[in-house]
Design a binder for these strands. Structure first.
Lengths: 336, 336
DNA sequence: TTTTAGCACTCATGACAAACGAGTGCTAAT
DNA sequence: ATTAGCACTCGTTTGTCATGAGTGCTAAAA
């Protein structure tokens, strides 16, 4: 394990590098507040730390930069000394009146603005609610719009094709039946259950069953899995590690592919809702070399429903981001 | 006006520059297929063309590049010789079953993939439709969800607060009344007209008018103006003019601000639905210096409802993009 | 034995000069 | 009116050199 002095030096290097983004030399460390040793001593220790894999040297006559292992150690063992400043508590204040969607949009923007990194929020899957109301509105002869409202107030809409043999009065009857029979069924099971129930009820109706079935199939296809809010993509460009257009490109490619962003937010340990930090190659997604993600899940009415994530260069301000994410998730979870 | 030879030379220069992205010299033009003159002749003409403002010279010992005026002339007078190849007609094929949204998403992706530029599609403003159907679904005591369907099949949803004195049966009655009275009214005028009509009808009902009014206000606040589909932002980075991170940044800033993108799609002549080309400073939006936009509107059931746009460097392949956009808008407009 | 001062050495970076070459404008010949 | 020829311009590339931040090692100091 590391000696107390090595810890202090490692901390100093990471801390300095996070600020300056340039290799730190022994001289700089020696002069840093809290470090009392001379440059020469620091040099010796740095050589050792490099041998142990905590530091790297871009070239012989340059200072040292933290390796991934170094960052990991910093986050795990040296960060607690960073007292999360609770002072600006009003930053986390929410406007309860706003829709959840807008809320998340705002938080995402705020967070990226405060950190200067990229922010992602994945919202609840609708499929978790229960059926509250259903309408079908015919638009043309063949096309209608279905609207499904869940008990959480979320609205799902589909465009559906009306089979030729089905008249609008039939549809009306079907809707009435569903609104009578299927209320309260979890959306995720709607497809199966509604089909069964309708099948039973239709015995005394004369409509062609297979046509009704295909309509129901269309009605209850919930494919839209998760909503995503992104902010601050361009802020990343201010980070010196993205001075290179090619790196920018791979990052933006990521942003355009929603699945990959969702993958970033997928927690390592599914049931653990606290703050999780993934550094560099610990991220199992391509195109984010040299980056770190910090994520945390929030809950609504005691169900874990979404995840907040911040993506930045490995040289990111872990302390600040962690305390901010903590604040926002708590604030969201406590929302009435 | 330009002589036939000057036109040919101007055409050659623009055409070549579009491919190579590098200043074109007299030698290159002279060797180009279709040009029979010697380099020296070309040089003379190029000097003239520069004097007239169609060409520019980065520095004395470099070739020429087209000025904005040059591009404008190219687009207006030299492009028709580019026979739009109708061959790959199946590119424009649509999957009629898909939702309009998905359709546009796909077209946008396709278009940017074919051109390697950025593609934008603005979907119809809902406010342009007419009321087809309205429901209000109570979620809790105080909160309800309103769903408005337009005659174009678009769905608008709001969360609204129920005033204390209003019971659910009152709401039901109100909805019935509206569905009876207000069908067919343009959404944009709904707020005024519905309020007036309801006022009349309410004479024989006993509900507290101001409360009803505030509810209606909430119902008919259409703030979400236009939906946007973007693709190929990252493809722009492959263009040599975006090798510079700062240019990328200003472009991405634009992308994050939706209003500005919408402004890009706003046609110059509102009623003209054909293909429109804006070159360089003709674009009245900041942050797109050195870019051109090509736009065209498509209609649905003879109402102009949306716009397709392609944003690229001024040095973009106008011919290709124009014929592609033409194809896609036609294809969309013919969608049953 | 541990820490520190001193010093020679490394190597990326920036400045400057020379060589290069793509392209031009002009003139004279066709 | 067109074109071949040639001197000239100027951005780019290449090479060399000086600079300085930072290191590793050794020997002195604590």
């Amino acid at each position: 394990m590391l000696t107390e002095r090595q810890k202090k030096i490692l901390w100093a290097i990471v801390d300095e590098y996070i600020i300056s983004a340039e290799p730190v030399g022994s001289r700089t460390v020696s002069k840093k507040k809290g470090v009392g040793f001379s440059a020469a001593t620091v040099r010796n220790e740095m050589a050792d730390l490099e041998e142990m894999g905590f530091l790297e040297q871009p070239h012989t006559s340059a200072g040292r930069i933290p390796s991934e292992k170094g960052y990991r150690f910093y986050v795990d063992h040296l960060l607690h000394s960073y007292v999360p400043k609770e002072e600006d508590h009003d930053v986390f204040l929410l406007d309860q009146a706003e829709k959840l969607e807008q809320e998340m949009q705002r938080i995402s923007a705020r967070l990226s603005q405060l950190t200067n990194y990229m922010t992602m929020i994945a919202s609840p899957k609708l499929v978790e609610g229960h059926l509250k109301h259903l309408s079908i509105v015919p638009i043309t002869e063949q096309i209608a719009v279905s609207v499904i409202v869940s008990d959480k107030g979320q609205v799902e809409q589909h465009q559906i094709v009306i089979p030729e043999m089905i008249s609008s009065s039939m549809i009306e009857e079907l809707v009435n039946l569903l609104n009578y029979r299927a209320i309260g069924i979890p959306l995720s099971q709607l497809r199966k259950q509604a089909l069964r129930q309708i099948n039973d009820d239709l015995h005394h109706l004369l409509y062609p069953k297979p046509l009704i079935s295909t309509m129901l199939e269309q009605l209850f296809m919930f494919e839209q899995p998760e909503q995503l809010f992104l902010s601050g993509t361009t802020r990343m460009l201010e980070q010196p590690e993205f001075r290179d257009v090619d790196k920018v490109r791979s990052l933006l490619d990521l942003v355009e592919a929603n699945e990959q962003v969702l993958q970033l937010l997928e927690p390592i340990e599914p049931m653990f809702t606290g703050v999780q930090v993934r550094i560099g190659s610990e991220i199992a997604v391509e195109g984010v070399e040299g980056c770190s993600v910090i994520t945390a899940s929030f809950e609504l009415e005691n169900d874990p429903v979404g995840t907040i994530g911040v993506l930045g260069p490995t040289r990111m301000d872990y302390g600040k981001v962690i305390s901010l994410i903590e604040g926002f998730t708590k604030s969201l979870s406590n929302r009435n």
